[in-house]
Design a protein around this nucleic acid. Structure first.
Ligand code: MN
Ligand code: MN
Ligand code: ZN
Ligand code: ZN
Lengths: 155, 155
DNA sequence: TTACAAATTTAGAATTATTCTAATTTAGAT
DNA sequence: ATCTAAATTAGAATAATTCTAAATTTGTAA
């Protein structure tokens, strides 16, 4: 945490109590929170905190490459304080997200027709699945609203 | 197109002129349009068409597994009338999206720790890159707003 | 054909996530 | 202690999407 502070103080990143709370919440967090998740958490200790502050801080961190936004949820952005390259798996029942640390770059070669059109700079894999908890629940629950499940282009 | 109509008429899917226009626009379309793209296109021939109709139709198609939504753009949903399993590459400069038809499932094995927690049902790869057009442009344009580029968890 | 119920269309309001604004406060430097 | 740039705040603005309720249309069956 000490180092965190030092790390951010450079580059005119002012450290306010609100920001420290946000930084602290994010540090080592593997839950991929949304802005709202963060807001509700920070509000516990800083009841006057504003939504704008959360967004401002996230933008500041994002612009400095300290958090990543992940494209996995249709409704809202999720933030990831772990900026090491990695992938994600999301439970299609409860939307729980987990990290997948594994480099597939070697295997993810683009087909020739694409290589002519695009110069690839990176890749990110979204895995879909059912988490353990939901798998157990589904024993007792009839598979309702199956038709409403989104069509995913899953391989 | 004849078959398209027959295909949708089953299951109480009523075919209105507006829907036919949408179906027609989507049929074989590889541009991954947003709801707004579709709306603006349909409006050319049906100036009175409503946004709600576009969304309603997309929902109906989605619920019947006839179009997929793709998670690649932070701002809005893109729709894909091609529901064969495939992946995408997006230009980080102009957001152009292209299809990547290649099955990487064999290589995309989950690490053991995840296998215990999730039962995987599918995967989707987002590639990032620069398209040919933007690559050429960038010769003449200074690399502005480089700092504002989002941190992507690219491998 | 005609009649009809159920599905669809529509304008506009509502909702939700995110960004912007402008006045006030605060952090960090001197 | 002073000062300025940066950060905070409430609330308004924006943008994508969904909802509502009344009017219209479709497909079907008499
Ligand atoms: Mn992660
Ligand atoms: Mn596609
Ligand atoms: Zn789950
Ligand atoms: Zn491009």
């Amino acid at each position: 945490m000490r180092e965190l502070i030092a790390k951010y103080r450079e580059k005119g990143f002012k450290l306010t109590p609100q920001r420290l709370a946000i930084l602290n919440f994010l540090d080592g967090n593997t839950s991929h929170p949304t802005a709202d998740d963060i807001y509700r958490e920070i509000k516990k200790n800083y009841p006057a905190v504003s939504f704008a502050t959360v967004y401002n801080t996230l933008q500041a961190l994002r612009d400095r490459g300290k958090v990543a936004e992940i494209t996995i949820d249709f409704q809202k952005k999720h933030y990831d304080p772990d900026i090491r390259p990695h992938h994600h798996i999301i439970c299609t029942e409860c939307n729980k997200i987990a990290d997948v640390f594994q480099d597939y770059s070697e295997a993810l070669r683009l087909p020739y027709n694409i290589k002519g059109e695009f110069q690839s700079t990176g890749n990110h894999v979204n895995f879909y699945g059912i988490c353990k908890k939901c798998r157990n629940l589904s024993r007792y629950v009839s598979k309702r609203e199956n038709k409403k499940r989104r069509t995913k282009l899953c391989a």
